[in-house]
Design a binder for these strands. Structure first.
Length: 295
DNA sequence: CTCCAGGGAGCCT
DNA sequence: AGGCTCCATGGA
């Protein structure tokens, strides 16, 4: 096992690991101590979080002056990528809309960073997110790992990573329904099949202009505009992407009514112009703030 | 009991 | 393109 620490002084802007990993933007990190999601600071904010990238287990926690990590490999650069620690939060916030709601959200969770989840896990977890509560989305990913993940030895402990595309592609719809995925089961199986066969992959999306990338992603089964935006924002680093879910639609009705253009594409465009070049950042702060009871 | 959750597919016009 | 309807599951 290798270890390291990233001093917070080396990170441009504030860092808040708990807000970053428990704001509903990623379902691929969990607490190895078994704590349930959203236990609200019961660990003093210094709990370890765990994820798996490829064949490597990676853990991170926040201490007073650093983000500490331990992993099956040298993960110093990887942790910076996964947790958005390279993003200059000061510059990003300066570019954000100055309206009261957005600023209140930024104030409440300063240090929340946009994650860069591995593509396939992000894609599958957000397909699972359709009409589902945050807590249960976590539970579904846990089931997928336990049932289909490859075992990895981590300092004597066996850790199961997110399933590989080929493995999920070979699962049957009924297998996945047994994991309580409901009507998302065939979506997950067929999308895994598309990735595994090469019919449509990360490489077909990455690097393309934002709206074209979103259109490409909707080629996956179970992926519409909203889930596509989640993958663009939380995996591929398109910081302008603004997933328009039920929370954002309500926020737009109540606080940005002139951005409501009656359809996803046009409302998205108007909302992005309002929130600025890093619209996805402010969107994620708004989502977490509103869902946690603000305003 | 009903309602709803980080929506999308299929089918209709 | 835009507007239905249905889709599993579990907690409030």
């Amino acid at each position: 096992m290798e270890r390291g620490a990233i001093p917070v002084d080396d990170v441009p802007g504030a860092v808040d690991l708990q807000s970053t990993l428990e704001s509903g933007q990623t379902y691929l990190w969990w607490r190895p101590d078994g704590a349930t999601y959203e236990t609200d600071g019961a660990y003093g904010g210094d709990a370890w979080y765990r994820t798996v990238v490829g064949d490597d287990v990676v853990e991170a926690r926040q201490t007073e002056d650093a983000i500490e990590w331990r992993a099956t490999t040298d993960a110093a650069d990887l942790v910076r990528d996964l947790l958005g620690l390279r993003d200059d939060l000061r510059e990003i916030r300066r570019a954000a809309t100055e309206d009261d709601l957005a600023q209140a959200a930024w104030d409440a969770y300063d240090g929340l960073r946009i994650v860069r989840d591995p593509f396939f896990g992000c894609l599958i977890s957000f397909i699972c997110s359709a009409q589902m509560r945050v807590e249960r989305i976590f539970a579904m990913q846990e089931s997928l790992r336990a049932e289909y993940g490859d075992p990895i030895d981590f300092d004597g402990e066996t850790v199961y990573g997110f399933p590989r595309p080929e493995t999920l592609a070979e699962a049957t719809e009924d297998d996945l329904r047994d994991l309580k995925l409901g009507y998302r089961a065939p979506y997950v199986q067929r999308t895994a099949e598309m990735v595994a066969s090469g019919e449509l992959t990360e490489e077909d999306v990455r690097g393309r202009a934002y709206e074209l990338a979103r259109e490409k992603l909707t080629g996956f089964v179970g992926v519409g505009d909203k889930v596509a935006d989640c993958v663009l924002l939380f995996s591929l680093g398109y910081l302008e992407a603004v997933p328009l879910d039920t929370w954002m639609q309500t926020a737009i009705e109540d606080h940005y009514p002139d951005c409501d253009r009656g359809n996803y594409a046009d409302t998205s465009r108007a909302f992005r112009e309002r929130l600025g070049p890093y619209a996805g950042y402010t969107q994620t702060y708004l989502f977490h703030y509103l869902r946690s009871g603000g305003e």
